[in-house]
Design a binder for these strands. Structure first.
Length: 722
DNA sequence: TCTCCGGACTTTTAGACAGCATGTC
DNA sequence: CTAAAAGTCCGGAGA
């Protein structure tokens, strides 16, 4: 189908042709002929990179241009929100406004009302729904990207609930990877279904075993026995490779090992670009290994890296500076990083109870990264059989069908939170209405019988009543209580809120960082670190040493919570070090964690600390305790001791600069105001830009003069420099 | 007596959403 | 119920 023939607004065609697209891919054409353009719901199940985004863009923009209102585009990751936001920005030439909103920024909900296309994570949109944002009623279209995540254990229920809320109120376009039961999903959503495995770049799949590469078409190629030769070979051909492994350690090891082989194939300019890249990376034990690998044009990519480094690597890969990335599954579902050859080293993964086969769906997503549109005619996806029987791998992953999707609504943790939200934020008045809502979910559609779900819901309702989240009047109608409503809006697990509430008296008696941090770490919303075997004794000792500061009892060795508790103690200790200004590098070493892990813990602790304070406010707070908690929150956010709190409020002053200022004798804003700029500039980390920002923040008059400007003006920064 | 090596035994293991008010080194 | 690689410990051989 030609772009010209599209039954959509001319302006849309112009923009598309502006991208150099004249002809639509067959599945795109099929999708657009399915009735979506006339407002019908659609489930589009086609491989990654086969043009789902363009379909959704056409549907969104066409709808907005003809009907007005808003379109919401849901993604599973913050990084993807960013990526889609940049892509959709292009449509602003037609007068549409695009915004992205995630937990990271732009939470002023009403402000979003000025935009036409809103990209959001599913959880963020759920949160917006809970806050009852006024513009939700203008949403005419919801695009749910990666909708197969409805089957994910911990996050699927959220997506399912959002779609249930919006079903019938807005048009729904669900974009999915190929799954075993797409038709079931389509039936639930009352949608047309377009399924296809067509790809713009041909995909060749194969299994590698002891030097033999068995292609799906029966051809066999021969290579050196070590699978690494597959990656090296790709680079020799002037291409790139993406290797998937199942552990961080594996990613690092293989990256360094491949690096020494790939380095020989690099050109001078490539080596220079890599050196440039390396010099821009911060130093710590993890990046030290990364830099070693990068010298040979190879990188590893896993959640232990900070966001900055991950993005850096992804960009460098796209620009072909980096030839090979060895990644854990972070990259499989993340931002778009296609490569000529994808090598899957592991098909098993450790998951709580032991090793499991990675689902076909996920392996197919990894394989789907093979082939760069516009650059490659064909992409190659190769599974390495190391110990596994190659025949089994071919049957399961190459010829096999992906798994069916199953509703995860019944997952206790999410369900608890969702039931609360239904009552406190979505006006569900009684049990009958609750059941009525649940009957419209995918769970109900799929299982038919909702009696076990109802039973669970009933249990949760009793839990919520018992803990004063909600109440029930004599006619058995639900009453939302402030504690419940706030819990739901803070987006924390009711169990977390209950733990907080129970701890308030103890906190009032003995407010202290360690006790509070252990409390935060003990909630289900915190991803705690794990205490390693050899560390266990140390943390147990620490717990006993700090026993009087804790708000809970130390469990016995036999207790099932014992292991978890030690992890909480470790997490609390890390947070304690953080607010005592222990340098990051030392934290990484002492606790054997990566930058990404610390970042994650801090991010969660920050959010939970805020929530703790917000909930405390509801229970006749004592002013001094409240102030104590607020200060601790600030210390947590900035990683500083109490004495730096004042300085850290200044723009661009974090834990390092604040400490430098303090140690140089500038201990307060007052000191800074009285000081000569010249002296302040002596302080490590304080340059012109920073000082300028501080003065602007404090409302001090100043101007940065060019060299030719007169140097005598009052308040001129350069006056003081002399 | 010290060092090195190998085998037996032990330990470890992917990822990442949410609030709110503005800016880390 | 299912694995595999790295780390640790210990004893024995050799210097």
């Amino acid at each position: 189908m030609k772009v010209d023939e599209l039954p959509v607004d001319e302006r849309i065609k112009r923009v598309i042709r502006g991208r150099g697209i004249e002809e639509l891919y067959p599945p795109q054409a099929e999708a657009l002929k399915s009735g979506v353009l006339e407002g019908k719901n659609l489930v589009l199940a086609i491989p990654t990179a086969s043009g789902k985004t363009l379909v959704s863009e056409i549907v969104m923009v066409n709808k907005l241009l003809s009907e007005g209102g808003k379109a919401v585009y849901l993604v599973p990751l913050k990084a993807l929100a960013e990526e889609k936001y940049r892509e959709f920005k292009e449509w602003e030439v037609l007068g549409l406004r695009v915004a992205a909103t995630t937990g990271d920024y732009d939470s002023t909900d009403e402000w979003l009302g000025r935009y036409d296309i809103i990209v959001a994570t599913a959880e963020k949109f759920d949160s917006l729904l809970r806050h009852g944002v006024s513009w939700i009623k203008d949403v005419k279209l919801v695009v749910a990207d990666e909708v197969h995540l409805i089957g994910s254990y911990d996050r699927g229920a959220t997506l399912e609930m959002i779609l249930t809320h919006m079903l019938g109120k807005a048009q729904i376009l669900a974009l999915s990877a190929t799954v075993g039961n797409a038709e079931e999903l389509a039936e639930w959503l009352d949608a047309s279904l377009v399924v296809s495995d067509w790809r713009p770049v041909e995909l060749r799949k194969g299994v590698f075993h002891l030097g033999q590469l068995f292609w799906e078409d029966g051809k066999i190629d021969r290579y050196p026995e070590n699978w690494e030769s597959l990656a090296v070979d790709a680079v020799k051909k002037g291409k790139q490779a993406l290797v998937f492994v199942n552990t961080r350690r594996g990613a690092e090891k293989e990256a360094i090992s491949l690096s020494s082989k790939v380095s020989k194939l690099l050109t001078k300019p490539e080596t220079r670009r890599l050196e440039e890249l390396i010099s821009s990376i911060e130093d710590n034990p993890t990046t030290e290994k990364l830099k070693r690998a990068l010298r040979g044009g190879v990188a590893f990519h896993h959640a232990g890296l900070s966001r900055t480094e991950r993005t850096l690597i992804e960009d460098a890969f796209r620009s072909r500076t980096v030839k090979v990335i060895v990644a854990t599954p972070t990259l499989a579902a993340g931002v778009n990083t296609p490569a000529f050859r994808v090598i899957i080293r592991d098909t098993k993964r450790y998951a709580n109870f032991g090793w499991i086969d990675i689902p076909v769906l996920e392996i197919q997503q990894m394989m789907g990264r093979a082939g760069r549109p516009k650059y490659d005619k064909v992409g190659e996806a190769i599974i390495v059989a190391r110990t596994e029987d190659p025949k089994k791998l071919i049957d399961k992953y190459i010829h096999g069908k992906p798994e069916k999707l199953f509703s995860m609504l019944a997952n206790e943790q999410t369900f608890r939170s969702q039931v609360l939200a239904l009552i406190t934020n979505f006006g569900v008045e009684d049990f009958r209405e609750l059941i009525e809502f649940l009957s419209r979910t995918f769970y109900a559609h799929q299982r038919g019988d909702t009696s076990s779900l109802e039973y669970k819901a009933k249990d949760i309702v009793y839990f919520l009543i018992e803990n004063e989240f909600i109440d029930m009047d004599i006619e058995n109608r639900f009453i939302a209580l402030p504690f419940g409503k706030r819990t739901s809006q803070l987006y924390i697990d009711p169990l977390t809120a209950k733990k907080f509430k129970d701890a308030f008296p103890a906190i009032e008696r003995n407010p202290n960082p360690f006790g509070i941090f252990q409390l935060l770490a003990s909630t289900p919303d915190m991803a705690t670190l794990t205490a390693r075997r050899r560390e266990m004794e140390d943390y147990l000792d620490l717990a006993y040493e700090m026993e009087e500061h804790l708000y809970s009892n130390i469990p016995y060795y036999e207790d099932s919570r014992f292991q978890g508790f030690l992890g909480q103690v470790k997490t609390a200790k890390v947070l304690l070090d953080w607010i005592n200004e222990v340098p990051e590098a030392r934290i990484y070493e002492t606790y054997n964690i990566d930058p990404g892990d610390l970042y994650r813990v801090l991010e969660l602790a920050d959010w939970l600390m805020y929530s703790l304070i917000e909930l405390y406010k509801l229970f006749e707070p004592k002013e001094d305790v409240l102030q104590y908690l607020r200060d601790l929150h600030l210390r947590l956010r900035h990683g500083v001791r109490e004495e730096l709190l004042e300085l850290v409020k200044l723009p661009n002053i974090g834990r390092r600069r604040a400490r430098a200022l303090y140690n140089a004798g500038f201990r307060s804003v007052d000191d800074i105001l009285k000081a000569k700029p010249k002296d302040l500039l002596q302080v490590e980390g304080i340059g012109l830009k920073i000082l300028e920002g501080i003065y602007r923040h404090l409302g001090v008059e100043y101007t940065i003069s060019e060299k030719e400007k007169p140097k005598k003006r009052k308040g001129n920064l350069y006056d003081f420099l002399k």
